[in-house]
Amino acid sequence: MKILNNERNLKRLILVIYFAVAMVEIIAELFLYKPFLFVFKPLISIVLMVLYWNTSNQKNPLFFFAIFFSLITNMFFIYDTETMLFLGLIAFFIHRLLIIYYIIKLIELKDYIPLFIAMIPFLFFFFYLLSITTGLTTRSNGILIIQNILISIIAGITLSDFIMNNSKKNTTWFFIFGLLSITQYFIVFIEKYYLSDLSPISFRPLAIILNASVYFAFYKFVLAMERSNDN
């Protein structure tokens, strides 16, 4: 009994640290204080991996690889140079692919037709945004096309799984993850290409809040699926 209490207390402590790190990152982003960003941006991914290590019975390497590439992405995005931004987008592309592959394995997706149908409205929406966005370079345009497809896949998987399996308890965290992922992508897109002058004041902290929430929801979904598969 004492061991169980110690494990629960450790989990609560790590959770508190996770959200405390997210809060410090929000403040650092709000004031653009880069020394703190260099510490706390990668730290939030590290704390999440520690949390998963202490709560998961399976400790799937895919989880660690996916979150590690999120860490790499966040580090590259701190710099303002075009080269670092491009490297960050490559890391983010690998991260997205790992997330999609991991989700497909967890939910044991076999019928892809509902996924493709559910993707269609998201593809139309994000490509419409892309079509009305001006001043994009050829490289930026190509990157956004790939990102639009990847977020549409995540949205399609989320929506189709929620409709087909809405009686299962573990779909709740998956739906929250998908909804937050779409919102985060939309906010970052609007911030980057339409409201860049306002982003340091409002949109960047909001994007960080969504980022921390996205990965916490993903962690909860992974745990729920692992426990469901064990049972």
Rank of each mutant, 00 (worst) to 15 (best):
T73S: 10
F124A: 10
L179Q: 07
L144K: 00
F189H: 02
M49Y: 01
D161A: 14
E7P: 00
D230F: 12
L150W: 00
S202T: 11
I3F: 08
I190D: 04
A212M: 01
A118H: 07
I149P: 00
G142K: 05
S181E: 01
S181N: 08
N5Q: 12
S70H: 09
I190W: 11
L223N: 09
V47Q: 03
L4H: 12
F126C: 00
L123I: 08
F92W: 14
Y215H: 13
A217C: 05
I209Y: 10
I67R: 03
L85F: 12
L210V: 01
I153Y: 06
I132W: 04
G135M: 04
A118S: 10
V222C: 10
K2S: 11
S70F: 09
F40W: 01
Y79G: 01
L51C: 06
S140K: 09
Y112R: 12
K220S: 13
F64Y: 12
M75N: 08
R12Y: 09
K168T: 08
M225G: 05
Q184F: 13
F203D: 04
M84C: 10
A20Q: 06
V39T: 05
V50H: 02
K2F: 13
S202L: 12
Y33K: 05
I78K: 00
F177D: 03
I27G: 06
F126N: 05
K105H: 13
E226L: 03
R204T: 14
Y185F: 13
I94K: 02
K220F: 11
E82I: 11
E25V: 06
R139W: 11
F86H: 09
L150D: 01
F122A: 06
F69N: 00
L98Y: 00
Y219V: 00
I190F: 15
I107H: 08
I90W: 04
K169H: 14
I94Q: 04
L13D: 07
G142C: 02
K59Q: 14
L13V: 13
I67V: 13
I3W: 13
K168Q: 14
N6E: 14
E191L: 07
I26A: 02
L85K: 14
N165L: 12
I113P: 11
I153R: 06
A118V: 08
A224M: 09
L4I: 12
F174A: 07
I146H: 02
A20Y: 03
R96F: 14
S167V: 14
I46V: 12
L195S: 04
I107Q: 00
I154Q: 02
F86W: 09
T158L: 02
S140V: 09
F40M: 06
T138M: 08
F177L: 08
L85Q: 15
L51Y: 12
N165M: 06
F31Q: 07
I100D: 05
F31M: 11
R12C: 09
L62K: 09
I209F: 08
S199Q: 08
Y193Q: 01
S202Q: 11
I90R: 02
I103L: 11
L97F: 12
F65C: 13
